[in-house]
Computed example of a mutant assay.
Amino acid sequence: MKTIEGRQWASREDLITHSGYSRDTLSKLWRARGANGHPEPRDIDGVMHWDVEIWDGWFAEHCERPRDLSGVDRSGDPDELLPPAGQARVLGVDPSRITQYAKNPPPEWPDPIHTEQLATRTREYRTRAQLWEWVDKPVSGFGTKGGRPSGPGAKTGQAKAAARLRLAVEALAEMPGRKVAEVAAALSERHGQSVDTWLRVITQARKQAQQ
């Protein structure tokens, strides 16, 4: 990693080590930035780098997005080999989704246990256990609806987010010499919510102050 003006910047290689996820997964998250809000990079010596603090905040929020997994079928033999149609039934999606995954797999999509060569294509088999494990990984993004919420609930959420941002700004002003993690811990103790949540809010507050 590189440190510039007191902030750490990570290349893709650095993020692989930092996050524990594969190059393929991180590349897919980057390519889907239009939908998931992935932070923009900074060119350093001709290589893309990301502000580690901002990336961490975004990634934590990405993994904590509400997901609806109610359509996933958790019954049956975990080790049963399933063709694409069976995989679609387990996930509660249209079979065309599995076809799309074969061409453009989402993050952490499991490799097939068995393949069958047909006349015009290859049929991939996966087990129920593989599918259950995949949907339970927040990074997969499965079950997350795209777009922004709307309606009264969304307005309430926006008001709460604005209030948390204001509290973070005030806390940063009150504790200028404290580390971000310490400020987040203090906010968590005072107002509830997890330390990770406050870390994201503080990151947003600092970014807003720099603009």
Rank of each mutant, 00 (worst) to 15 (best):
G147I: 03
L81Y: 06
G76K: 06
R178V: 01
S96W: 04
S22Y: 03
A154S: 14
T197R: 08
G177Y: 01
N104L: 09
D136V: 00
R123L: 15
R67L: 09
I113E: 11
S150T: 15
W55C: 03
V72H: 08
W30I: 08
A209G: 02
L165W: 01
D14N: 11
T144C: 13
A32I: 00
V195G: 00
R121S: 12
Q211S: 13
P112R: 08
A10Q: 13
R67N: 08
W198F: 06
I4L: 15
R12L: 14
S140A: 11
Q130I: 06
V52Y: 04
K155N: 07
V139R: 11
R190C: 03
K28L: 14
V72K: 05
P152N: 09
G71N: 12
L82A: 05
A184P: 05
L131R: 05
L131A: 06
V195I: 15
G151M: 08
E182A: 15
L172E: 11
Q117A: 09
T144M: 12
E61Y: 03
A102M: 11
Q204K: 14
Q210L: 12
T144D: 02
E61D: 13
D24C: 02
G151Q: 05
S11D: 10
W132N: 10
D111P: 01
K160C: 02
G46S: 07
I113N: 02
W55L: 15
G20P: 04
R148H: 10
Q208Y: 00
A119W: 01
R166W: 03
V201I: 14
V169C: 01
D73Q: 08
P41A: 03
A88D: 11
G34H: 07
A209V: 03
Q211Y: 04
V169M: 10
K145M: 07
R148Y: 05
S140K: 05
E5P: 00
P105M: 07
V169G: 02
G92P: 09
A173C: 04
A102L: 04
W9N: 08
L81C: 05
Q100R: 13
P84D: 06
T127C: 05
Y101H: 14
R97I: 10
G92N: 07
L131S: 08
L91Y: 00
Q204H: 10
S75W: 01
K145A: 14
G71F: 04
V47T: 15
R148G: 02
P176T: 08
E61R: 15
T122H: 02
V139F: 06
R33L: 03
R121V: 02
A161V: 03
P78E: 06
E5I: 02
H49P: 06
